[in-house]
């Protein structure tokens, strides 16, 4: 008895007080790609640090620290208790994405991506992730 649900509903983009909120729905067990624009405003700028927060937690759940090196060689860290080794950041995508495999129902929530640049203004964007349970 298997019920096939919509796999992925097209992300909805809503700008709210200049913080972009993207709504994404995903079926539990699938992979999801959380967008985070890391493009620079000027050609001489570079991304220094990318921090992913889940709104109910004060510490990031995923970080990409390129402050002391080229961003392509940045140090990646993923919270053991959240995405652990299920998450991988893809800076080459347009926009960049945090891929998360095998989504669980407990992954549902609002995520914030903060991008610190060497020169430019910090960019914050949010993803509201809804996880649809498997039947």
């Amino acid at each position: 008895m298997t019920l096939v649900l919509l796999k992925l509903i097209a992300p909805q983009l809503i700008t709210h007080g200049s913080v972009t909120i993207v709504h994404i729905e995903v079926v539990a067990g699938e992979a999801v790609y959380l967008p985070c624009d890391i493009s620079t405003q000027t050609s001489n700028d570079q991304v220094a640090l990318v921090l992913w927060y889940r709104e109910d937690l004060g510490t990031p759940i995923y970080s990409v620290d390129g402050r002391d090196r080229d961003f392509n060689l940045a140090e990646r860290w993923s919270d053991e208790n959240v995405f652990s080794n299920r998450a991988y950041f893809m800076p080459e995508k347009q926009p960049a994405e945090l891929g998360v495999d095998h989504i669980r129902e407990t992954d549902q929530g609002v995520y914030r991506c903060r991008v610190d640049f060497r020169i430019g203004q910090t960019r914050n964007s949010k993803v509201n992730l809804t996880v649809i349970g498997e039947y």
Binding site: G17, L51, T59, S63, D65, R114
Partner: peptide, 17 residues
């Protein structure tokens, strides 16, 4: 307008409030 201050700790925690 709405003024917000965000404080972040150094690595490894990068804790923010």
């Amino acid at each position: 307008g709405l003024y917000r201050c965000e404080v972040s700790a150094e690595a490894p925690s990068f804790a923010s409030a």
